[in-house]
Computed example of a mutant assay.
Amino acid sequence: MSKSPDDDRTTLKELKDRVAVFVRERDWQQFHTPKNLSMSIAIEAAELMEHFQWLSPEASQNPEPEALAEIGEELADIVIYSLSLANTLGLDLARTVEAKMEKNVRKYPAERVKGKAHKYTWYEDKSEV
C-alpha cells in the first residue's frame, strides 16, 4: 500500500492483497486451508474475549490504552485470518457483507427490533406457523 492505511482510504482489496502477499512470501498457502483458517479465527476470537472476560459491561466500554492496543491486535488477527479465508475461498467480501446485511434487514426489521436484543426467531410471527 503506497498511502498510509486507514479506514477512510484503504479498500478491502488492498487489505486482501496485502494479506495474500504476506502468505505467499512465506509459502503458507499450503497451511491456509478453510479448516485451518476457520479454526484460527475461532482461536483469535477466544483470545479477544479474554480481554473482556471479567469486566463489567461499563468497564468493557473504556479499556486502558495498553489493553486497547492488545484488543486491537487480537481484532487485527481475526480480520487478517478472515481476509485470508476470503482469499482462499475466492469470496468477494464486499458482496458477501452486503448480501448478509440485506438478509439481516429482513430478519431484524427496525420497527420491530429497535432497542431489543433477541435472536431473530423471537420476532417471528408465531401465528403464521
Rank of each mutant, 00 (worst) to 15 (best):
K126C: 13
H32M: 10
I43P: 03
A42E: 04
D8G: 07
T33S: 07
A76M: 06
N36H: 03
E64R: 00
S84A: 14
V129I: 08
N62T: 10
L85N: 04
E58T: 11
E102H: 00
A99T: 13
L91P: 04
L83M: 09
K103Y: 06
K116N: 07
R106D: 15
A117H: 08
P34S: 05
V19L: 07
V105M: 07
E66P: 01
P57A: 11
E66D: 09
V129L: 14
F52A: 02
A59G: 06
E73H: 08
P65N: 05
A76E: 04
V97H: 06
L89P: 00
K107I: 10
L85E: 06
S127W: 15
M101Q: 09
E14H: 03
R24Q: 10
L75P: 07
K3D: 08
R9H: 04
S56R: 05
R106W: 01
F22D: 10
N62E: 03
T88Q: 09
Q61M: 12
D77C: 13
L15H: 03
V105L: 08
N62L: 09
F31Q: 12
D6Q: 04
E58P: 01
S127F: 15
S38P: 02
M39N: 08
D92C: 10
A117T: 09
G72K: 05
N62V: 12
I80V: 13
R9Y: 01
R95E: 13
M1W: 00
R26Q: 14
T33C: 01
W28Q: 15
T11W: 04
S82K: 09
S38V: 03
R112G: 03
A46D: 15
Y120H: 15
A46N: 13
L55S: 05
Q61E: 06
G90L: 12
E14G: 05
V97M: 13
M101K: 05
T96C: 14
R106G: 12
K13A: 01
A99C: 13
M49G: 10
G115I: 02
A69N: 14
A94P: 00
V79E: 07
D7C: 11
P34I: 05
D92W: 12
Q61S: 03
E128N: 07
Y108M: 11
G115A: 04
T10I: 09
D8F: 08
E14P: 04
L37V: 02
K116E: 07
I80A: 15
G90K: 03
G72E: 00
L75V: 08
L68I: 01
K103V: 00
R18A: 04
M39W: 11
E66I: 01
S82I: 08
L89A: 07
E111V: 05
W28H: 13
T121A: 08
S40L: 13
Y108H: 13
A42R: 09
L85P: 02
K103E: 06
R95G: 13
S38M: 05
D77L: 11
